[in-house]
Deep mutational scan, measured.
Amino acid sequence: MTSCHIAEEHIQKVAIFGGTHGNELTGVFLVKHWLENGAEIQRTGLEVKPFITNPRAVKKCTRYIDCDLNRIFDLENLGKKMSEDLPYEVRRAQEINHLFGPKDSEDSYDIIFDLHNTTSNMGCTLILEDSRNNFLIQMFHYIKTSLAPLPCYVYLIEHPSLKYATTRSIAKYPVGIEVGPQPQGVLRADILDQMRKMIKHALDFIHHFNEGKEFPPCAIEVYKIIEKVDYPRDENGEIAAIIHPNLQDQDWKPLHPGDPMFLTLDGKTIPLGGDCTVYPVFVNEAAYYEKKEAFAKTTKLTLNAKSIRCCLH
């Protein structure tokens, strides 16, 4: 018999989150649709729960009410004593943790798909938090293969000092899905179709896995975050240069030392320094102006996964 890495157990509980950011409308629209008619997301033997994560922000069509829901799922915020004085999103995070967690427990949901849009030209993107997770690498390989020839990129946010504390991190297997470009507060049919297909293929993978299909060893190309880059700023902290036209919409493309990065209003080009080629992502993302992030630098690498098969009882 072929030796293989056996994944822990079959997958039982899956959640699909929309509206973690209330103005990213593809996930909101799909989740609302699936709450009314969820036939397309159901798979035999699998509990799939669509869920609106930040209903107040969705109602106002804004990213958040008090603070970013997708950055506060750490033990400090989840452990705060519940009171009306807490920011709305912290209270909501505790409610979500109660419903789908608790985080880092045996009772937490197996998989959470968190649906997002970006204003950046990132196409279909899967966000991975753990480079050693054979199950998710296999799932992402399946999704990428199923979507081809449509490109699907994998963004690895594993980093020693950049801690995200994402909404989906309460699950055993957290999956971020990011599709763009799409303006905030807008629905685009092409973007919706791409996100819908990503979810379909992900659920198909889980179904095949649960039925005992063995997935042979595989490898995927990923883009691992190195650092986030702020806009150049003046002495008052105001933005002093904008994304250069040569960099705009060039997510995932190589940016070499000396290539144009920013452009000042008086026409001066600010190039990339250093001696390493990087791959920019979230270029000129609207939501990241407040976070002082013009783009993120990534490096390209390959992740390998062992063969996996479900432990059938």
Rank of each mutant, 00 (worst) to 15 (best):
N284T: 04
M261T: 09
K213F: 13
G180E: 00
T299W: 07
T26I: 03
C61V: 13
T302S: 08
L156S: 04
P149G: 01
A171Q: 04
P149R: 02
G185I: 02
A148N: 10
N70H: 08
H98M: 14
N236L: 08
S307P: 11
N210D: 00
Y288V: 11
P257E: 03
H33N: 15
H116Q: 08
P232Y: 01
C152G: 03
P50G: 00
P160H: 11
F215E: 03
P149E: 05
L35R: 09
L30T: 02
R309F: 05
A287V: 10
I72T: 13
L156G: 01
C124E: 05
K213R: 14
D249P: 04
A294W: 05
G101D: 06
G176H: 15
G45Q: 06
K163A: 12
P181W: 05
D193P: 06
N236K: 13
I239Q: 09
M122A: 14
Y288W: 09
I96A: 06
D66Y: 06
S120D: 00
I72V: 14
Q138G: 05
S146G: 09
G212T: 02
W252E: 04
Y223H: 11
E293M: 15
K292G: 15
K60G: 12
K213L: 10
N37V: 04
P55R: 10
G274D: 08
L203M: 09
L150S: 10
D234L: 08
N117I: 04
K224T: 05
L265C: 10
N70E: 12
M122S: 15
Y173P: 06
R92M: 12
A286V: 10
C276A: 15
T299G: 07
L147T: 00
E40D: 08
D130T: 02
Q194T: 08
K291N: 11
V186T: 14
P271Y: 11
G274Y: 00
N54W: 03
C218N: 02
Q194F: 09
K253L: 08
D74C: 11
G176S: 12
H5L: 12
I127P: 01
T119S: 10
P254K: 01
E129W: 07
E89M: 01
N117C: 11
P260W: 03
E24S: 06
N54A: 00
V58P: 04
E89Q: 05
M261L: 09
K49Q: 12
L75N: 13
G212Q: 02
A39C: 11
V281T: 11
F73V: 12
G79E: 13
F113V: 06
V278A: 02
Q182Y: 05
G38F: 10
N304A: 12
P102E: 10
K292V: 08
K253A: 08
W252R: 07
S120A: 14
P217V: 02
A294V: 05
T277K: 07
Q194W: 12
K32C: 01
K297A: 14
I112N: 01
E293Y: 07
D66M: 03
I225A: 15
I41H: 00
S131D: 09
D234R: 08
E238T: 08
E158S: 06
S161N: 14
A286Q: 14
T44I: 08
A165E: 14
D104Y: 14
I270L: 09
D251T: 02
G273T: 13
P160M: 08
R63I: 01
L192G: 02
T26N: 04
A7S: 14
Y109S: 00
K13T: 06
G101I: 01
M139A: 01
E36R: 11
L115F: 04
F17M: 09
H98L: 13
N121V: 04
P183F: 05
Q42N: 11
I206T: 07
I191M: 09
Y153C: 08
S83E: 13
A93R: 10
N304I: 09
L265I: 10
Q182A: 15
R168L: 07
F262Q: 04
I270Q: 03
M139S: 01
L147Q: 02
P260K: 00
L75H: 13
K59W: 08
P257R: 00
K200Q: 11
L69S: 06
I11N: 00
V179C: 13
Y64I: 06
G123K: 07
L203K: 04
G185L: 00
D259S: 07
H208T: 12
H21L: 01
A57G: 07
Y173D: 01
P254G: 04
I16S: 02
C311E: 15
I308R: 05
H98F: 12
L69C: 04
V283W: 05
T145A: 12
C311H: 15
L303Q: 02
L312T: 15
A7V: 12
S105E: 12
G267M: 06
L46M: 14
E221I: 02
L25W: 07
A148C: 08
E89I: 02
K253G: 06
R309S: 11
N23I: 06
G258S: 09
A219H: 09
G180R: 01
D259H: 04
G274P: 01
F140K: 02
G273M: 10
T277E: 09
K49Y: 09
R196C: 03
E84M: 13
P160Y: 09
K228Q: 09
F135I: 00
T298V: 01
E89R: 02
E290A: 11
T53L: 05
I72F: 10
M82K: 13
P271Q: 09
A15E: 00
L69G: 06
E47Y: 09
P149Y: 01
D193R: 09
L86I: 12
A294T: 05
N134V: 07
I225T: 13
K80C: 13
E235P: 09
I16P: 03
E47T: 13
F209V: 07
D249E: 01
P232R: 01
F295Y: 03
E221M: 00
H21D: 01
P151Y: 02
K268T: 10
F295T: 00
H141F: 02
M198V: 14
C152S: 04
C218E: 04
E285M: 04
V222N: 06
L25I: 10
T118N: 08
P280I: 05
D68E: 07
L126F: 07
H207E: 14
T125L: 01
Q250H: 11
I137Y: 06
I65V: 14
I199A: 03
G101M: 06
D114H: 07
I225C: 15
N284Q: 04
S169L: 00
